[in-house]
């Protein structure tokens, strides 16, 4: 029996949730019960293959998971996918893409304590959002918001963020979303 995380029908479902998350930033997604509680596992398994590069800054993955993900290990400055503990400060600059190739930029997966409820509240505006929406969460180091604002201030350059928690929830904040702490 293959673990659910590697089953292609489940990966298709996770992808459709990712599609929904990117289409409607701030909309909280909940993964299927059979998937691991830390949501980034399923997201990485769905997105990565041998052609992707990954940096696990805070050692959230176990060594045994790397061969299964197939992703190439890369430093923070060149990785196309970066997995971080969101409670730790943002202390680097990821790939932001170039003016002609803005898609060659990093996707950040930030593991936080809770999504959909928590002490921190963000107001979101931008494509995919009618007027505005709010997102509650807990466990995100405030430096990420300041850094992200810097990284995304020159559209089309920027980074796309996926926030994940340990109750199978995740939310997408693509580069076009304007964030405000409320």
């Amino acid at each position: 029996m293959i673990e659910p995380i590697w089953q292609t029908p489940l990966q298709q479902q996770v992808f459709r949730q990712l599609l929904d998350a990117y289409s409607y930033p701030g909309k909280v997604q909940t993964l299927a019960d059979t998937l691991p509680a830390a949501a980034y596992h399923a997201l990485l398994a769905t997105l990565l293959d041998g052609t992707s590069s990954l940096c696990d800054r805070d050692g959230l993955l176990e060594a045994t998971q790397w061969p299964l993900l197939q992703a190439q290990p890369a430093p923070l400055s060149t990785a196309r996918f970066i997995l971080c503990d969101g409670a730790q400060a943002a202390d680097f600059t990821p790939l932001l893409g170039t003016l002609t190739d803005p898609e060659q930029s990093a996707t950040l997966l930030l593991a936080v304590a809770s999504i959909g409820s928590g002490a921190q509240a963000l107001r979101l505006r931008g494509p995919g959002i009618q007027q505005e929406t709010t997102l509650e969460l807990a466990g995100l180091h405030p430096s990420w918001l300041a850094q992200r604002a810097d990284w995304c201030c020159h559209f089309p350059l920027g980074v796309d963020c996926l926030l994940t928690d340990t109750q199978r929830r995740f939310v997408a904040i693509p580069r076009t979303t304007q964030l405000e702490v409320c």
Partner: peptide, 14 residues
Amino acid sequence: KEVRRTVLKAIAIP
């Protein structure tokens, strides 16, 4: 997977 990663970038950069 490649198409899926491409689609997500396409949504992020309208």
